[in-house]
């Protein structure tokens, strides 16, 4: 299926906060209580539409354990968006946000859009992180904030789509140099009016004169 743009996302955050469940809810519209833990990185994708443009989201779901950080870091590069997830029922996952954020900012393109997600909003009775705390943290660090439930699907669409809209706005504002590599955005052959003249499908990138050399 053709698309105007492809955006690469990463989902990051402590282990067990619901990263894979958010992805599954977004791509398959389902929730499973029983699933295998994520080892390394797993992938999902879905086509969305923004302002009449078809956009493919290619989502990298990462393992949460600290031990894999040195691998996770290499995934940030070339991501246009990131969902930084914590669990509203576990304080420590909120406390670790700063370290995740620093890591992400340090290893990604400076324009990467990061959305803060407080997941498991269906578990209100077990809540230990107040919504206001999430909002304040997001405000302080220039992020958009949402509370979601991968189980009930509340706000899940909005989290992924909102991030995509923010990226799209940045492209239109010219903040993303989409001709440049490594910012997690690709132009499909369904050209948008403001897109530059990229090479056509199946054409090797070296055939194109208007871009810098690659690998």
């Amino acid at each position: 299926m053709s698309y105007a743009y492809l955006f690469k996302y990463v989902i990051i955050g402590d282990t067990g906060v619901g990263k894979s469940c958010l992805l599954l809810q977004f791509t398959d519209k389902r929730f499973t209580a029983v699933h295998d833990l994520t080892v390394g990185v797993e992938f999902g994708s879905r086509m969305i539409t923004i302002n009449g443009k078809r956009i493919k989201l290619q989502i990298w779901d990462t393992a949460g354990q600290e031990s894999f950080r040195s691998i996770t870091r290499s995934y940030y590069r070339g991501a246009a968006g990131a969902l930084l997830v914590y669990d509203i029922t576990r304080r420590e996952t909120f406390n670790h946000l700063l370290s995740w954020l620093e890591d992400a900012r340090q290893h990604s393109s400076s324009h990467m859009v990061i959305m803060l997600i407080g997941n498991k909003s269906d578990l209100e009775s077990r809540r230990v992180v107040q919504k206001e705390e999430g909002e304040a943290f997001a405000r302080e660090h220039g992020m958009v904030f949402l509370e979601t439930s991968a189980k009930t699907a509340a706000n899940v669409e909005e989290a992924f789509l909102g991030t995509a809209r923010a990226i799209y706005r940045k492209i239109q504002d010219g903040q993303f140099d989409i001709a440049k590599e490594g910012n997690g955005i690709k132009i499909g052959h369904q050209q948008s009016p403001m897109a530059h003249s990229g090479p056509t499908a199946r054409q090797k990138s070296q055939d194109s004169g208007d871009r810098s050399g690659c690998c």
Binding site: S2, K56, S70, I71, E181, H189, R202, S205, C214
Partner: peptide, 18 residues
Amino acid sequence: SIEILPTEEASTSQSISP
């Protein structure tokens, strides 16, 4: 289950070496 490649086309080509 492990879709890693945008199957349509790639207009840029780059390495994401760590």
